[in-house]
């Protein structure tokens, strides 16, 4: 009982250190990488952090039904993103649209 408590407690602190390190990386990264990649780099770090929180703080590890539900909803969100991004990237009326080239 007591040992399992200690092990779990150490686990929480380990994740905390990992998250703190990643936060430091968040701040120092823009100084290092080319600004073109800042956006993707930031989102990548956020995803790693989110994964740590999901797996360890939210105890998703080993949850079968819940794990699949989470995955399913994330896939749907990913699909929404991909289609809407395809649409907006192929926007055909950029030159004539009021919202993309406002009349000055």
């Amino acid at each position: 009982m007591v040992t399992s408590y200690l092990i779990e407690k150490v686990g929480y602190y380990k994740v905390l250190i990992g998250l703190l390190l990643l936060t430091v990386v968040t701040f120092s990264l823009p100084e290092v990488v080319v600004s073109k990649y800042t956006f993707s780099a930031q989102m990548f770090i956020a995803t790693v952090k989110a994964w740590l929180i999901l797996m360890y703080y939210m105890h998703l590890k080993g949850e079968k039904t819940i794990g699949w539900s989470v995955l399913f909803s994330l896939l749907i969100v990913a699909f929404f993103f991909s289609i809407v991004m395809i649409d907006v990237n192929n926007f055909q009326y950029t030159d004539v649209s009021h919202i993309t080239s406002p009349t000055k």
Binding site: I76, F79, I83, I86, D87, V88, N89, N90, F91, Q92, Y93
Partner: peptide, 22 residues
């Protein structure tokens, strides 16, 4: 059913690529 909403937008000015996919 989650993947087909765009067929309501054919006349909205959505891109042709998206129209074909939907």
């Amino acid at each position: 059913g989650y993947l087909v909403w765009g067929h309501h937008l054919y006349t909205s000015g959505m891109s042709d690529t998206a129209k074909v996919i939907f």
